[in-house]
Design a protein around this nucleic acid. Structure first.
Lengths: 184, 184
DNA sequence: GCCTTGAACTTGTCAATGACTAGATCAGGA
DNA sequence: TCCTGATCTAGTCATTGACAAGTTCAAGGC
């Protein structure tokens, strides 16, 4: 990969990574395409070639996020608790992706790449959530309950709403919480 | 209340409402202070007098949101299921407030009004979540589980992630899901 | 009735941004 | 060698957020 000269060589990835950094530092409002271009050392219009506009960049981020989530869920297997913990791990390890993914108004949710990745993750998610279903009658609601509790815990954790001792691992903190759904 | 003349009479509320409308229509990126000023029929700098800057406006929105949530929870009483459904109702009836509240990077989370309102809502929330706790030992985690499942369901609903028949009431849809936490 | 005071709002301004257009550079294949 | 498409630069314009300074108005003291 070349880093100097007319052609950057890997601008798309570089800008994407810079966006994750910038959003992670300053939130979803604290970044600009021009700032990303400056970080990458290219002209202010270069990112537009790869992403079109701001929404296009977030669309790419969302698609990447659903892909990463699908991979994480795949490795966790079909067990509910493992899938739920994997969900929390993904969210806390990729907070920017997670934050963008579930705000469809920020990007083009009907984009092909996004839709495909989302469906792939959705299938794996349903598989994990189905594992917690006792009675077939309530399986749909049980699946929703499983997704909700994992998603809710991750969201609250990222929002800083859960007061935990500093240094606590979010996955460790999530385990006894997710278990509550199994025990009653 | 006067609507014409040099003094608007109720600019703060008008701009706040306009912000909710604008964000509801175009998302958290699709609005500007100047657009809100135009909608309210005042000069482009008028909103700044009440909110300082963009983050100031979102801070006011967040504070209002926590207040509204506290009221809703108060009416629901200490029962977990009722509190959880009230939480979902609040989120779906005030999606913009809800969306802002749990993105602390968008506003000044250490603002006095916000902190006060958040603590008030938090106390009521803990009360509702405690009602689901069976064993005192697990009560902290059970409370977290209750909050997580309600928050998660609301978030996924607002994100359009839950595929329900059109016209379904979110509170009705949430009831059997939240119940899963009680039944196991 | 007059003046003071402060809140509410306007006008003017500037750097920064998003988006667009046209053009330059480069790599690879026919 | 030339052609084609992808990649990036340079230039531009309306819009925006933020700030400074000035204007209007209401309410209360005298």
């Amino acid at each position: 990969m070349r880093t100097i000269g007319y052609h950057h060589g890997d601008l798309r990835r570089t800008v994407l990574d810079a966006a994750v950094d910038a959003i992670g530092e300053s939130g979803l409002d604290g970044w600009s395409l021009r700032e990303l271009a400056r970080r990458a050392g290219v002209s202010h219009a270069a990112p537009a070639h790869h992403f079109g506009d701001k929404a296009g960049l977030l669309t790419a981020l969302a698609a990447e996020g659903f892909d990463l989530l699908a991979e994480t869920l795949k490795q966790a297997g079909p067990d509910f608790l493992e899938a739920g913990l994997a969900y929390v791990r993904f969210a806390t390890e990729h907070p920017v992706h997670f934050g963008v993914m579930f705000q469809p108004k920020l990007y083009r949710a009907d984009d092909d790449a996004v839709r495909h990745a989302r469906e792939r993750a959705g299938a794996l998610l349903a598989q994990g959530a189905r594992a917690v279903a006792a009675s077939p009658a309530g399986s749909a609601n049980t699946a929703r309950a499983g997704w909700s509790i994992a998603h809710g815990f991750a969201s609250l954790w990222l929002a800083g709403a859960l007061t935990e001792p500093a240094g606590t691992d979010p996955v460790d903190a999530a385990r006894p919480v997710l278990r509550r759904l199994l025990e009653g």
